[in-house]
């Protein structure tokens, strides 16, 4: 059986029509990416300081902070009875309470680690080496999140580090050499992006507390996107049986800033030489 040219044209037209009809469906499928709300460039206060959303408590938490500190300070600032007290003094109160609470959950090893940490001996400062997991995740500089197939790529301006978060349901590898940022798997659940990380190298929890964590650390990041203003909020739960008797919960917020460009970061600076990254 042979087809006339007209029949061939009709068949091709049908194929094209079918293809065109399927395009919107494909586009819809992409738009339905549950991780889509989390994609983009997000900034802390450094590049958004004029935004009225930020409060004094946010500034005090610009490198991330324990939730009890943020909530405690916010409550003190909200109390009209404290209006005559300088905000910095209230921050001191909240900070002391938060550090006492941190001390209370440190294991004997955790206390030893905290007492032994001396920033001037920290090679990450002396030798300009990137931070470990917790300080990198809560760092104050902009961060960009994009989708790359089965995973998210998080591009931190701080130290120009890249991090993969696998969304395909895989488990952490059974045997893997620990790394600075560990191995991360994620899922979107009830509108929140949940990221679980393990396999990190021991490091500090924060410069302010000088508390540390071991290689046994497991972390759960819970990111939610909120509006007015468009922002990304993190609740970071740190569990480490070596240094904590119970989980430590931290928080940090970024604003959505598509206009902000990520600046290349390096450790190449030399005295008296241009340092443009």
């Amino acid at each position: 059986m042979t087809h006339t040219p007209i029949a061939k044209t009709g068949a091709v037209s049908s194929l094209l029509l079918g293809a065109l009809l399927t395009l919107p469906l494909g586009a819809s499928a992409q738009a339905a990416d549950p991780a889509a709300p989390f994609l983009g460039t997000w900034s802390g206060v450094f590049t958004t300081q004029d935004n009225e959303y930020w409060t004094f408590a946010d500034i005090q938490c610009f490198v991330g902070c324990p939730v009890d500190f943020y909530e405690g300070l916010s409550a003190l600032l909200a109390n009209p009875a404290n209006d005559a007290t300088p905000a910095m003094a209230l921050s001191g109160q909240a900070g002391a309470a938060s550090l006492a609470a941190l001390d209370a959950i440190l294991t004997p090893v955790g206390k030893q680690v905290r007492a032994a940490n001396r920033p001037e001996d920290d090679p990450k400062f002396i030798n300009c080496q990137p931070y470990g997991f917790v300080r990198e995740v809560t760092n104050p500089l902009p961060v960009q999140i994009r989708r790359d197939g089965d995973h998210l790529v998080v591009r931190y301006e701080e130290w120009s580090l890249l991090r993969n978060i696998y969304l395909d349901g895989r488990a952490h590898p059974a045997h893997k050499t620990p790394t600075l940022l560990g191995h991360s798997v994620g899922r979107v659940e009830g509108g929140a992006l949940i990221v679980e990380t393990a396999g990190v190298t021991p490091d500090l929890i924060s410069d302010n507390s000088q508390a540390g964590h071991s290689g046994e650390l497991t972390a759960v990041e819970r990111y939610t996107v909120r509006q007015n203003p468009h922002r990304l909020e993190l609740t970071l739960t740190l569990t480490d049986p070596v240094t904590f008797t119970k989980p430590l919960v931290m928080t940090k917020t970024w604003l959505y800033t598509p206009e902000v460009e990520i600046v290349q970061d390096t450790c190449s600076q030399q005295p008296g030489k241009p340092d443009l990254g």
Partner: peptide, 27 residues
Amino acid sequence: RARYWIFLSTIALVPLTHVAAHHSPTM
């Protein structure tokens, strides 16, 4: 740079011990 830092830390005792990373200035 590391040697320089140790030198400075020695002569300045406490003051440089907290100059690390993105610490809050209030600390």
